[in-house]
């Protein structure tokens, strides 16, 4: 995948290597690198996903990192239909339609 100058892209920066992380954090976290992901407009003429590039962010910072996505979009959703919670509405309506205290 090739991005060209001016494309809206997502880059990743290796901010701290695992061995540079704070000592007072859980051991599972300490074994991982600390990354940043930032979006911006590609400053370079072109760049392939996986290569290093430079971008201009929304606040006009010029920063560099590895190109990981071109024209990143949002794919989060309202989730799946959940059979587990289907009882709630029925239960609440039934309780409200009962005449007196339980």
């Amino acid at each position: 995948m090739l991005a060209i100058k001016g494309d809206w892209v997502l880059i990743e920066q290796l901010y701290l290597r695992a061995d540079q992380r704070q000592s007072n954090i859980p051991s599972d976290t300490r074994q991982t690198d600390f990354h940043l992901r930032i979006k911006g407009f590609l400053v370079d003429e072109k760049c392939v996903v996986g290569d290093d590039c430079t971008i201009k962010t929304k606040t006009e910072r010029i920063i560099s990192g590895k190109l990981i996505d071109i024209m990143p979009n949002y794919e989060h959703s309202f989730g799946d239909y959940l059979v587990e919670t289907a009882y709630i509405e029925h239960q609440l309506r039934n309780l409200l339609s009962e005449d007196s205290h339980e």
């Binding site: 704070q22 991982t32 940043l36 930032i38 979006k39 929304k58």
Partner: peptide, 21 residues
Amino acid sequence: RAIEAYGAEVVQCSVGPELFV
């Protein structure tokens, strides 16, 4: 998404308190 919708820049971090750094 909402932050970007309002025109701001988002700096996303992996897990850990180094976000403060």
